[in-house]
Design a protein around this nucleic acid. Structure first.
Ligand code: MG
Length: 405
DNA sequence: CTTCTCACG
DNA sequence: ACGTACGTGAGAAGC
């Protein structure tokens, strides 16, 4: 009657509960000494920023910072917020070469973010058993994803090398290893499946690099001719398509003219014409029914799509395009989690599923069982559902999350 | 408490 | 003319 509830969410509740109770070990001493190394760097940067500004002020206050940048130093102000001029990363990026203070602000923001959120925050969240026990919220998101809080272990830094260091402090207990597996391009594979687009399905079935293949197909060139720049653009388009992107935002993202961005999107949707038809279909049905639906029948109501405010209605359409993709990917990894949990319980009870990060699962297992745990992870993730394209997951083992990912 | 900013997929 | 990519959680500032 309610297959998402009965077949996915109810079985998943026990899995999430077990993951929270198990937790993951934090190397608190190493985390602390990393923090102690950050502090003098933050201090030094603050001094340089005060010197560049000509006086001390609270760098962490966007209000005070905008007075320094846009009034005292006379830098050109950009976007406005409700309460004043924006000082966010996009705005500062445009000013990077205009004043020596800008790169210092970037560095200061990066280091204080890492220190405040990930040194102090994680230190405060470690339990007496030396492990982090997050709360996985099962009924929080609109799309069917789970979220993680107190502490959030789904936004631990990875994109920059300095931030990535924090993953060294998430470790396996003595005698254990972490096995980590993540899905390759799960959202684009879901899009290929849901849209049934022949060209996109073919690309995934042939097993090449999706972004390179997309660039080659759209531009009509052999894949080996694709430059890194062309691949980056194709990647941004692939990414944007999943969000129901417009030319304006794509242009801003990859730094081309709006006209050029519009051509990229147009060429993409002409080549992957099944994707254009699919997007039309899901927005129409959301307007008619008032909801979007995932592959397994999870519904999200979208009142925005009936709004008379066209900005809100446009948001409704993007939600209608994105929710089936993000939500189906969420359904799939939830199914995989229940499969992994059951299979470990039956075949490798010393191993524990401990973390989920949207397209990634982490198991902790005794050293000598870690390879087997990794195999089980890969098999159960890849076999969770049958799609029109292969679903692949790559596993790795290590002493820490840094090593295993 | 809201706003701004920034970390993740 | 206007606004402009989906989904989250957390810390600091300031009201
Ligand atoms: Mg991945």
């Amino acid at each position: 009657m309610y297959p998402v509830l009965a077949d996915i969410e109810i079985p998943l509740a026990e899995v999430l509960s077990s993951m929270e109770i198990e937790g993951i070990r934090l190397d608190a001493a190493a985390l602390h000494s990393f923090g102690e190394e950050l502090l003098p760097k933050i201090d030094g940067l603050a001094g340089e920023i005060y010197a560049a500004a000509g006086h001390e002020f609270n760098i962490g206050s966007p209000k005070q910072l905008s007075v320094v940048l846009f009034e005292e130093l006379g830098l050109p102000a950009g976007k406005k917020r409700k309460t004043g001029y924006s000082t966010d990363a996009d705005t500062l990026e445009a000013l990077r070469d205009k004043h020596q203070i800008i790169p210092l602000i970037f560095e200061y923001r990066t280091l204080t973010k890492l220190y405040n959120t990930y040194v102090r925050g994680l230190e405060a969240a470690v339990s007496p058993d030396g492990r982090m026990h997050t709360t996985f919220k099962q009924t929080e998101t609109r799309t069917g994803r789970i979220s993680s809080a107190e502490p959030n272990i789904q936004n631990i830094p990875v994109r920059t090398e300095i931030g990535r260091n924090f993953r060294k402090f998430f470790v396996a207990d003595e005698g254990n290893l972490l096995a980590d597996a993540d899905y390759s391009q799960i959202e684009l594979r879901v899009l290929a499946h849901l849209s049934g687009d022949k060209a996109m399905i073919k690309t995934f079935c042939e097993g090449g690099d999706i972004h390179t293949e997309t660039a080659a197909s759209v531009l009509g060139l052999p894949p080996e001719w694709i430059t890194p720049e062309q691949r980056r653009s194709a990647k941004a388009v692939n990414f944007g398509i999943v969000y129901g992107i417009g030319a304006f935002s794509l242009a801003k993202d990859i730094n081309v003219s709006v006209a050029e961005a519009k051509r990229y999107i147009d060429d993409y949707l002409t080549h992957y014409s099944g994707v254009r038809e699919y997007m039309d279909k899901v927005t129409k049905s959301a307007e008619k029914d008032g909801w979007a639906v995932t592959m397994f029948g999870r519904r999200r109501f979208i009142p925005e799509i009936l709004s008379t405010n066209k900005t809100v209605k446009a948001l409704g359409k993007r939600i209608a395009m994105n929710t089936p993709i993000q939500g189906t990917a969420a359904d799939i990894i939830k199914i995989a989690m229940v499969r992994v949990y059951r299979r470990l319980k039956a075949e490798l009870p010393e191993a524990r599923l401990i973390l989920q990060v949207h397209d990634e699962l982490i198991v902790e297992a005794p050293e000598e069982k870690a390879a087997q745990a990794a195999r089980i992870l890969t098999e159960e993730m890849q076999g969770a559902v049958k799609l029109a394209v292969p679903l692949t997951a790559d596993a790795k083992e290590g002493r820490s999350w840094y090593e295993a990912h």
